[in-house]
């Protein structure tokens, strides 16, 4: 069998390895697959779609009613009904393709997003700790920040899938409902605003998700923290603002801060922001920045603790 040694020989791979940033994208891809393999994720996605379709059809409905009443007159119990009389029900949602339409949409999408993020945090980060898969990632030639970046990218993708992307679709739809040439030209800044809102959400919520998941790891306490942040704090801060008459209390409401940042990206009139009164935009930006900073500082502290204890 003298020939066989010529058949099998080692040929080293001659390519150059790409930088660790590519590893982060690979990590993000793998994380997304992990998340979307779960049925519960699709259930939550369906809930998010429900909100989207409500806005999608309601926006259409408002235009349809307006057009219909321009030609026909509707009488209700003998009284002619004005367009405003009917579309007034939709006014709190501002379904007219303005800054508040997209702001409101993302605000309502937040209810689903919170639960999705609690799930994502425990599946993508908590499981790595509790199932001991962290050493697999960290044994690769990537830094710990690259690991965190990868996870943040995956969470950011989910956030944008639920908020920015459908909001852009609403913007496109609004353009088609009105005169598209003038709408798209006049409201191009709105598109940039939506993207800006998405960016703020991504940059804030991804590190926040990773940080809380690193902190508590399991789904149950993770859900408690998220619900505390996004349900309890708004409840409490809202009632404090009303009773104590200091808008500063509203800055405890993280989701409201993000909403204000988003609306300032969308260049919305501050006096029109619901619920009133609201703190000025700059305070919301400051508070959001503080949250991001705190998360990054916490993560930095955790990263410096070298040992991985599963």
């Amino acid at each position: 069998m003298a020939q066989t040694d010529t058949l099998l020989r080692y040929r080293p791979w001659r390519g150059t390895a790409r930088g660790p940033l590519y590893a982060s994208t690979a990590l993000a891809r793998a994380s997304l697959k992990l998340l979307f393999r779960r049925r519960i994720m699709w259930g939550l996605f369906a809930l998010a779609l429900l909100v989207f379709f409500f806005f999608f059809y309601a926006q259409y409905l408002v235009v349809w009613i307006t057009n219909l009443l321009a030609t026909d007159s509707v009488r209700f119990a003998g009284i002619p009904v004005t367009v405003r009389g009917i579309t007034r029900f939709f006014e709190p949602l501002a379904l007219n393709g303005t800054a508040h339409t997209f702001g409101n949409f993302i605000w309502y999408q937040g209810y689903v997003l919170v639960i999705v993020l609690a799930l994502a945090g425990s599946v993508l980060v908590g499981n790595d700790f509790s199932h001991g898969s962290l050493p697999f990632f960290l044994s690769k030639p990537i830094g710990r920040w690259h690991y965190i970046l990868g996870k943040c990218l995956a969470i950011g993708a989910v956030i944008n899938l639920l908020t920015t992307f459908p909001a852009i679709l609403l913007w496109v739809e609004a353009g088609l409902l009105y005169d598209w040439k003038s709408y798209y030209l006049d409201n191009f800044t709105l598109l940039l605003g939506i993207i800006g809102y998405g960016l703020v959400l991504t940059l804030t919520l991804s590190p926040l998700t990773v940080a809380t998941a690193v902190l508590v790891r399991r789904t149950a306490p993770m859900a408690m923290i998220w619900m505390g942040l996004f349900v309890l704090l708004p409840m409490l801060s809202g009632s404090l603002v009303e009773s104590v008459d200091d808008t500063g209390w509203r800055l405890f409401d993280v989701w409201n801060n993000l909403y204000l940042c988003g609306l300032s990206c969308l260049n919305a009139d501050h006096a029109m922001v619901r619920p009133q009164p609201q703190p000025p935009y700059w305070q919301a930006w400051l508070a959001t920045g503080a949250v991001v900073g705190a998360c990054l500082l916490y993560l930095r502290k955790r990263i410096q603790a070298v040992e991985i204890v599963s």
Partner: peptide, 9 residues
Amino acid sequence: RRPVVVGLV
């Protein structure tokens, strides 16, 4: 399998 998420919903 993910009771907390179902419960939250």
